[in-house]
Design a protein around this nucleic acid. Structure first.
Lengths: 343, 343
DNA sequence: CTGTTAGCGCTTTCAA
DNA sequence: TTGAAAGCGCTAACAG
């Protein structure tokens, strides 16, 4: 019954009103170079005809898509989701949409994603490098093509030409461990993530430094670097570690909230009291720590804020004149130790 | 030092090789209508010159962006993230990218998002309606313009012309409650979400039916419909409810995992034993239930699978010839009751 | 204030 | 097997 409907375009409005396409375009842009009465006529007709601008045509012609590409290592990590929320919040205020893709913890995927973004679908890119990412030529190459880039979180190497947003992982973990020491803990275990990941390396360094500063001997048996990239296996690794650890720790500093929760779970099942027998600290503060019983003390990382900041920096770059050489920034966000029942 | 570099385009390759743009385009497409030797030359030159196709131009010309728009009510709900993961998984296999936006639990935002997608940036749309969404004209209007749509999860009203993916909420909760009854529980409380949301309505119906079937009296005092849309307030509402409930329940059926966890937290703090004094069931099975101590029994909803299914249906629609009238499908996915320590 | 016109970079007929 | 040329729908420079 309904006729085959072609999309209404500027030309249709122009023809109907016996004016030029350019005038219609300008009228819809509310350009001051169009008589108000004409503008009104155009708006009215556009509405009547159900006109909807074609974003693709606009983009081709203007060279701007108003889309930001975001590449994160994985979806199933609340930290990245929080950051994306922050990005989305800021971006949508500025009339940008975000295209998220996951590099699945793989350098190759990260590279592929970047290349597919290079095809012009995004105006700029926000990226959190995977643990595998050692070489940054793929990123530099994007920057060289004039596409703005902002990096966040796990940055093994500074990339000139990109903004960076991060926290001071070493300092944060140093303070957390020191806090345990000040509580009188001596046998402090460390549970970290894959060694290759910069953030985990730094958190480990903070642990070591705090121990050293207070002259507490470091036992290798009390140190675990989880190698899993999968939630299920993390659980198994941690259980195995805790069941076999030769020295009973009186505190455990863990590098993510999830490690912290898994640690508490296993400790409780093994019959330990938290925090009396063993204190536990997590890292992240992603909303689950205060649901668990006992609630988890942790380093609170401003994930949402980080997302907003990252988006802000990118959009600033986008708004700069192309020829003005942007002074790239390195922004460090503050962390706080949130004390709850596990310490 | 570096020259102002313009992007390499087909024309540049064509000129260098003294052939036409059309031939270059066809060669890169591996069209059989191009001599193999020409194709090879083109590929070689394209690589040398660092050619990168312009996706926007391609899209304008082909009418296809290979982007799927996804609209979810909120980001901070693991269920939606899992679904998005599933969508992304299937979509990326089929060479689609996804553009996610949140309707922030608001009908108005949902509508706006839809309209912005209508501007041609996406080939099709996946949408999970908010609790506020009562009218579906905005969705129908999209469908009428020929844009494929798939709906999932909270569908108050079937929309002809769209595929639907859901679970049988009523049956799932019926079975869960019946399970509690069979365990000998009599004073079963219900904690649900906003009354306006179809899924919560159905889960409530399942509860009522199970109680009725087994002739167990229903006490209004044992029923809570959380009205919060915010994690923090959910916690407060549940605490208040549990502290004031006049009849002590011996079991609590809750409509999300988060409600279940919050419920357990509060019960533990009030000194109850789980499951001896009170059993608790959640809904969702989103990875936290088995970390908590005690672990949470829950209705397991196949979120990731749902995402894959939804993407599959959408891409099927996209692949159909435009004139073939697609028979819209309603897919119901199975749920399972996962028994853990809280019952 | 309005119109004409030349692109944006690619695809795709139609012709050769 | 290749090329010329007409779009895709919109923007923007230029002219009037």
């Amino acid at each position: 019954m309904t006729l085959k409907k072609r999309r209404v375009k500027l030309e249709d409005i122009a023809r109907k009103l016996h004016i030029s396409i350019a005038t219609v375009s300008r009228a819809l842009d509310k350009s001051p170079r169009v008589k108000i009465s004409t503008r009104e006529k155009v708006f009215k007709t556009a509405k009547e005809m159900g006109y909807m601008p074609n974003q693709i045509a606009k983009s081709l012609s203007s060279g701007k898509t108003n889309i930001i590409g975001v590449i994160i290592p994985r979806y199933d990590e609340p930290f990245f989701i929080e950051v994306c929320r922050g990005i989305d919040q800021y971006a949508s205020e500025q009339n940008y949409k975000i295209l998220i893709s996951s590099s699945r913890n793989s350098y190759e995927f990260e590279r592929e994603n970047l290349i597919s973004f290079e095809r012009g679908i995004v105006d700029g890119i926000i990226l959190s490098p995977t643990h595998e990412t050692e070489i940054f030529t793929h990123i530099k190459s994007i920057i060289n093509k004039g596409i703005p880039v902002v990096l966040f979180d796990n940055i093994r190497q500074k990339v000139s030409g990109a903004d960076h947003v991060l926290i001071d992982d070493k300092k944060a973990s140093f303070k957390a461990v020191e806090f345990l020491i000040e509580k009188g803990k001596k046998k402090i275990a460390f549970i970290g993530g894959i060694k290759e990941k910069k953030v985990f390396q730094d958190r480990f360094k903070g642990y070591l430094e705090a121990m050293k500063k207070h002259n507490i001997p470091i036992h290798d048996e009390l140190i675990l670097h989880c190698q899993s990239l999968d939630r299920e296996f993390e659980d198994i690794e941690i259980q195995k570690f805790l069941k076999r650890v030769p020295i009973e720790p009186d505190a455990i500093f863990t590098c993510t909230d999830n490690y912290g929760l898994l640690t508490m779970k296993t400790l409780l099942k093994l019959g330990y009291n938290i925090p009396e027998d063993v204190a536990v600290i997590g890292f992240g503060d992603l909303g689950l720590g205060d649901v668990f019983v006992p609630s988890l003390t942790c380093v609170s990382q401003p994930s949402f804020e980080m997302g907003k900041k990252v988006a802000e920096l990118l959009i600033n770059q986008l708004n700069e004149a192309n020829d003005i050489k942007h002074l790239k920034k390195i922004v460090k966000l503050k962390t706080v130790l949130v004390q709850r029942d596990s310490t």
